[in-house]
Design a protein around this nucleic acid. Structure first.
Lengths: 221, 221
DNA sequence: ATGTCAATAAATATCGATATTTTGGAGAAA
DNA sequence: TTTCTCCAAAATATCGATATTTATTGACAT
């Protein structure tokens, strides 16, 4: 059987499809934190065999989105205020480092990618929220993409996603307060392009901490 | 069939067994960096089915010891001088942070665990090298174990193992220079117990950088 | 020689069936 | 009631077979 997706392109593989779907379901909260992930049940949702499901879950372990207990199956990673605050703190440390390294190795090519991803993000602001999320992620990752340290970037990307997850969890209970995020992004871009390292980093961290405090509060309730 | 290992205890699971064995083979260099990891071939070595092998390999992805390319199988993570230096630099940053946090949250209980793991390490120095490696790892992880940040500790543990791998790769070509590592460990322990944060951190980083320079040189050839 | 393309071989990915282990609960003993 | 033990049900883990994809080879035209 030749699986064809809506666009007519061949799907890469059942495992990859399962991986992407499950990842999304965990990040959006469709699979709640701490929930047991039963193979049979997921087989139904993803309509595929047990092997791709198991393999996708094993892969999600890397992203700290799934926990595996030997002989006892998988579960969605638990969530807690403590864990959220740990993520925020680590993220601030690592992104600060990565942004500093990126700026100190700045090239005009990187600068242009930055302007581009910022532009693309602005363009989709307000409309499709999924498109904005994607562009927002791309902008932030581009900021760090010149650090010269792929592993550091990987850690940051992981932490970014884990943070998004908490944002989604909180979004269910409280409407997402829309402060002037656009202005914050503009400031980060501007300072970075000017290669004002300290200002860029403090803007970035401030950006995270503002959201962080808001989320932290909503996790109390 | 009930698999029983040499000690008479039940083996946890085929997947876990495969995971541990493969991990060890990659860390020790028995599976060289960059090598293609064919399922059938590994099935032979581990004598188990394809599913546990694939799942173990997927799990090893978390540790950055295996790369997975969709539809094209698995390979042992490549190694390079650049990669080694990245690991060393990241490690220094993260362990410095973790040790500072550990010391600032120091308790007498942690202090005692530290003394214990140091003692156990000294006890096996010189004899069984595998036993020393294990005790050495335990000592270093205990140093960080009080940081209050499980994710940070996880990152450090990952980087520690990746570093060990390079040590093993280099050890094949050059005899391992035995400078006074014992004294270095003593210094780290002493400063930590005294809660002299700066001295403890600089001793720790120095410990890593000395080994690092040595390894870095041997990777040139 | 050299590049292209189809046929073949090899390897990966996936399925369905089965063995093994854990879980939950009913009933017996304290 | 509480605690234990044992049995059935559920879930996980694993196997062997097969489908699908990628890699390789060699004939053929340039």
């Amino acid at each position: 059987m030749n699986l064809i997706d809506e666009t007519g392109a061949k799907e890469s593989s059942a495992t990859r499809g399962a991986y992407l779907t499950l990842r999304d379901m965990i990040l959006t909260g469709a699979l709640p934190a701490g929930q047991k992930l039963k193979i049979e049940q997921l087989r139904g949702i993803l309509n595929t065999g047990a092997s791709p499901v198991r393999e996708a879950l094993s892969l999600l372990t890397s992203d700290m989105l799934v926990e595996r207990i030997d002989q006892r199956g998988f579960r969605a990673a638990p969530a807690s205020k403590t864990n959220f605050e740990e993520i925020l703190a680590l993220r601030c440390t690592l992104e600060d480092l990565a942004l500093r390294q990126s700026i100190s190795a700045a090239t005009s090519e990187w600068e242009e990618q930055l302007v581009l991803s910022h532009h693309r993000m602005k363009k989709v602001t307000g409309q499709d929220s999924a498109a904005f999320e994607e562009a927002h992620r791309a902008f932030h990752m581009t900021l760090l993409a010149n650090s010269g340290s792929p592993m550091l970037e990987r850690f940051c990307a992981q932490l970014y996603d884990l943070n998004i997850r908490y944002r989604n969890l909180a979004a269910n209970s409280v409407t997402y307060q829309r402060r002037d995020i656009t202005a914050e992004h503009d400031d980060i871009l501007e300072a970075t392009v000017q290669r004002d390292t300290d200002l860029a980093c403090s803007s970035l961290l401030n950006h995270y901490r503002l959201t962080g405090e808001y989320l932290s509060r909503s996790l109390d309730t």
